[in-house]
Write a protein that binds this DNA or RNA. Structure first.
Lengths: 68, 68
DNA sequence: ACATTATGTTATGTCAACCTAACATTGAAA
DNA sequence: TTTCAATGTTAGGTTGACATAACATAATGT
């Protein structure tokens, strides 16, 4: 199961969803979906998000076990 | 533009495309496509590949500028 | 010579990752 | 109170990330 800390890092930089979307080339809805964990973005987008948010990809996205 | 070093790390571990696909849950064709750079896999798959190949995601996938 | 394994490659299909557009809600600022 | 920015959310459409299947080739082993 994929988890992420996009919202945490985005708000830390005082960026709106629209801002971040603009920086990485996607819409604010896409940013919202990712923050909600609704889908797994492409590595390309993940790398762009990491770059925009100034963190490692691994800090931004990680896998966790499912609960039993 | 997305680049990757999947093949280098895979062969270093003496894994076949089929082996690697099995480890991360995709077909050998998908591994082949990724090695050829035909598409940008999901972060989930990228994280699994990094884990299987024992490297950081950033060592496995990175963005480079387009040529003019 | 034959079989097997690894890889290349193409065709076709499905579903998820994106898009645009629209409308609702919240909170802050004038 | 009114306005506006930020976010939530949903509907409907397009494209790309996967799958399966098939066939071809090169290399290895028997």
């Amino acid at each position: 199961m994929l988890h992420n800390s996009v919202r945490t890092h985005r708000t830390a930089l005082e960026l709106t969803q629209t801002d971040l979307g603009g920086l990485v080339g996607v819409t604010r809805q896409t940013v919202a979906f990712i923050e909600k964990g609704e889908f797994s973005p492409s590595v390309t987008l993940a790398l762009k998000l990491a770059q925009a948010l100034k963190v490692n990809v691994a800090e931004l996205f990680w896998l966790e076990e499912e609960e039993a």
